[in-house]
Design a protein around this nucleic acid. Structure first.
Lengths: 210, 210
DNA sequence: CAAACAAATACATATTCATGCTATTGTGGC
DNA sequence: GCCACAATAGCATGAATATGTATTTGTTTG
């Protein structure tokens, strides 16, 4: 018997989900609430195996509820439910420890499968969500960054700037005159469209130049 | 009719997969190869919709094959097949543009579902793979970094430094005197063990303080 | 309430930066 | 050989930064 806890503000949908789940063998809705204001306590009381958590709720929303629960319980499986495959929320939910992310339009039969899957340690995701996750993943690790066409020498200087070297230190490190360092840096600023050392350093990090 | 291209070194498995797919309505195996040595050309010739790609193959392996194909074609859906849910390969495959990642023990019926799902833009993953991906994702983004015990005010200042603000700009932005800005920054430097703006900015990025 | 601490303010000074303009040298391509 | 360009170097000037020291005002915590 998989014990399910529901968080959904829409009364019709909450009732519908409860009936669907309670009417299926091996599932039981232990409780259902319309917001997450007391989620951690409720989880503690009802000891569910799986939580279905709506994202958009008045009061404490699903993402915050997820975080609150995860602060005290990282065992219960939490499936996020939403109408949109909103990039920002997906990302936030996943990094906050959600076990899956489903669209509300998920057909009822499939929803039960997903609950089972989550309960046994899987990570059910609606396929467009999964696609999005993979894309984020690959974006995050493949971004070569913009090409600012820095010369080798300029890259070297920028690298040293990033490492916190002063002009003087760069000069002695690279065996060139400090005025040369100045020239290089001026050129770097032009190419990066910045006008201070710290901006250059920040940009170097952001655009993964270094 | 979904056109499938197979890469699998084991002859039995290759035959088995071919028969399964060809024997199902709406699927057709356009070709099957035992390694990826000429994958990009073969993809070009056979124009498949979906590629099933074994990871462990002699010669050019699946990961490399994936990369080679993706250099010339980012439209074809590529499903990786493997016996292990090997962390490193999963990661590498995903960031190289795989559309899904399946374990070989996936039951035949489900495999066909997955092919359909990939063909329609989804990202099918065996559930333990999905779990792993989520975990990687959350590990990667939850690293709070070292705690330097910066005060709220100091964090605010550091944030502005990172955004390339000068002392003067920070002062007017935060409605405080420039001398106060100085004090805050000095304190930040002490806590971060640095002694220049650009070092502070670099450290803020590295340690994900901002 | 007192102690501890963060936030804010002030002043002084040496160093470092940003930016302008100019000029020489070396290298690769046409 | 000439051209374009990167790398080097020099000079000048005003702005910004780093660092020290010291005081006042709130807040939090024991």
């Amino acid at each position: 018997m998989i014990k399910v806890l529901l968080y959904e503000d829409n009364p019709q949908l909450r009732e519908g989900l409860s009936m669907l789940i309670n009417g299926s063998d091996g599932f039981e809705v232990v409780a259902a609430f319309k917001n997450c204001d007391n989620a951690p306590d409720e989880v503690d009381i009802y000891q569910p195996d799986v939580i279905l958590m709506d994202i958009d709720m008045p009061g404490t929303n699903g993402i915050q509820g997820l975080k609150n629960i995860r602060e005290v319980n990282d065992k219960v499986k939490i499936l996020m439910l939403t109408v949109f495959d909103d990039n920002k929320n997906v990302f936030e939910a996943i990094k906050s420890g959600a076990n899956g992310y489903l669209l509300k339009k998920t057909p009822p039969g499939k929803l039960l499968d997903y609950i089972v899957e989550a309960n046994s340690g899987g990570a059910p995701m609606s396929s467009n969500i999964a696609t999005q996750v993979l894309r984020m993943f690959s974006d995050m690790n493949n971004t070569k960054g913009v090409d600012y066409a820095l010369s080798d020498r300029e890259k070297e200087v920028l690298q040293l700037l990033v490492n916190g070297f002063s002009y003087k230190m760069i000069a002695s490190e690279m065996f060139i005159a400090i005025d040369t360092v100045r020239s290089h840096i001026k050129k770097i600023y032009e190419k990066l469209h910045v006008n201070s050392k710290s901006e250059a350093v920040a940009k170097a990090f952001k655009d993964k130049i270094v």
